[in-house]
Nucleic acid binder design. Structure first.
Length: 462
RNA sequence: GGCAACGUACCCAAGCGGUAAGGGAGAGCUCUGCAAAAGCUUCAUGCAUCAGUUCGAAUCUGAUCGUUGCCUCCA
């Protein structure tokens, strides 16, 4: 039984999908005006893990992530670079997919784009207008929040306590917190025709429209970063529920931030690293380990020492796995050990996707493997246990994505290495420690690590 | 000002009323020509502070201190 912390109810609830065996899930995706930063990556990786765990648990998951390809920032960027908004959006959509793949994030079922759903958005705005909930003000259409008595139910905010914003959207609004459904086009901005004149959709509209199009008017899980709770998700609820009269989402999930120096990482503060930059220095597995080692609802502080540590952890686990595989041969059996580990793993993961516990079980398994590998002879039972542990690591990895890929070196390279190691062996036989140590050091410098073990000399790419 | 979250060892971090998981660092040992890797042992009578509830509290209640987030584009 999976439990989920639901932002809407502020409680941990047993997860029961609307349709038995099937999960409909929507997560707010990128606005494609730039590379995404490593903080955005945390949200994407969090929900990638959630999705994979649901699938592992036997659900068929329909996963939708939107691409916001029309927005102020895209316009700003296009003007700055002297190219069209379309070109900016296309470029960074492509870059988004490259980073997603590099981070070992499984592709969503659908990646709908805002600009491809303008028709449906217009329909939603018109429906709200007809109900007297939306009003036209000089080509801008606003949502009248005074008409929605449930407004604020997600974020727990009360209208009278909201602070008037200094940067609130321009236009004649009835209430300061009414938000734009449709914005009239300004000079030089992309626009679409509408009953209220040329303009473009407000930010919140696309998520209401595209989620219902691909998942239905009510769906199971809606995810995003915690900062989207208000106003974005609040407004999505307002739009959708006022137009359909049905509950919009059953479970709202929000991932906490990645901080720098205990402060929120954000584009506007300028204290961020792009995922692309970090991926140049560290493997995706280390990034995933760093994030997944902590529960998704706790803030993480990003520091170089922490990602270094995560990288070492990932190497340690991968080493145990690889060495175990070498010793075990073809994986088979091991039912008992596998079941035991999976059971512990599930206890953690079922409890609101507690990956911190999941990973501690992975460490326990790696330790057990290393312990078995200490033995010179493996009994039938030992081998069976080893198999079970390895199978568990593979299962856990299919959700967490923390095992390093095998470095592909090619037959010639492998043959060359065996010549080099043979040479070093003969030097060691002659007790020429100076030369053999020099060789080891030189190899280390070019990223090849040598270990002299009781089972012979092993090498590995760093 | 309103609304939230959080404070566990040297560091990171689980824990959600039954007596402190896991990882890293440190120390000692085993293996080893050395190094590395791996293993073993060790490392919080205590969980921000102070009261209270309870047979029993890191866990519940209240107060205090501290940190952060949201209320405005944001993952």
């Amino acid at each position: 039984m999976i439990k989920i912390s639901n932002t809407l109810t502020r409680k941990k609830e047993t997860f029961v999908p609307l349709i038995n065996g099937h999960v409909s899930m929507y997560v707010c995706g990128p606005t494609v005006y730039d590379f995404f930063h490593i903080g955005n990556a945390r949200t994407f990786i969090t929900f990638d893990m959630v999705r994979k765990y649901l699938e592992f648990s036997g659900y068929k998951v329909t996963y939708v992530m939107n691409i916001t390809d029309v927005d102020d920032k895209i316009i700003e960027r296009a003007n700055k670079e002297g190219i069209s908004t379309k070109e900016v959006a296309e470029k960074y959509t492509e870059e988004f997919f490259r980073d997603v793949e590099a981070l070992k994030i499984k592709k969503a079922t659908f990646y709908p784009k805002a600009t491809e759903h303008i028709e449906e958005m217009l329909e939603l705005v018109q429906a709200l207008e007809q109900k007297g909930i939306a009003y036209n003000s000089d080509g801008d259409v606003f949502f009248d929040i005074s008409k929605d008595k449930n407004y604020g139910k997600l974020s727990g905010k009360k209208l009278e306590n909201l602070q008037a914003s200094e940067r609130s959207e321009q236009g004649d609004k009835k209430n300061n917190f009414d938000f734009a459904l449709w914005k009239s086009a300004k000079e030089g901005e992309p626009f679409w025709e509408s009953p209220w004149g040329n303009g473009r959709p407000g930010w919140h509209l696309e998520c209401s429209v595209m989620s219902s199009k691909y998942l239905g008017e009510t769906f199971d899980i809606h995810g995003g970063g915690i900062d989207l709770t208000f106003p974005h998700h609040e407004n999505e609820i307002a739009q959708s529920e006022c137009s359909t009269g049905k509950p919009f989402v059953k479970y709202w999930m929000h991932a906490e931030f990645l901080n720098i120096n205990d402060e929120k990482m954000s584009k506007s503060l300028g204290n961020f690293f792009t995922a692309r930059e970090v991926l140049k220095k560290y493997p995706a597995e280390a990034i995933r380990m760093l994030f997944l080692q902590k529960h998704y609802k706790s803030p993480i502080n990003y520091e170089v020492v922490f990602i270094e540590e995560a990288k070492n952890s990932v190497e340690k686990i991968t080493n145990a796995y690889r060495r175990g595989l070498e010793r075990a041969g073809v994986l088979k059996g091991g039912e008992f050990a596998y079941r035991n580990r999976i059971e512990d793993f599930k206890i953690g993961m079922d409890d609101d996707f507690n990956t911190a516990i999941g990973i501690s079980i992975v460490f326990n398994s790696a330790k057990e493997i290393n312990l078995l590998l200490e033995k010179d002879f493996l009994s039938e039972e030992d081998l069976d246990e080893l198999n079970g542990e390895l199978r568990f690591l593979e299962a856990a990895d299919s959700i967490l994505g923390i095992l390093l890929p095998k470095s592909e070196t090619g037959d010639k390279f492998n043959a060359l290495m065996s010549v080099v190691l043979k040479l070093r062996s003969s030097l060691r036989d002659k007790k020429d420690w100076e030369s053999s140590d020099l060789l080891r050091k030189e190899l280390e410098n070019i990223g090849i690590r040598i270990n002299d073990t009781s089972q012979g000399t092993k090498w590995d790419l760093k």
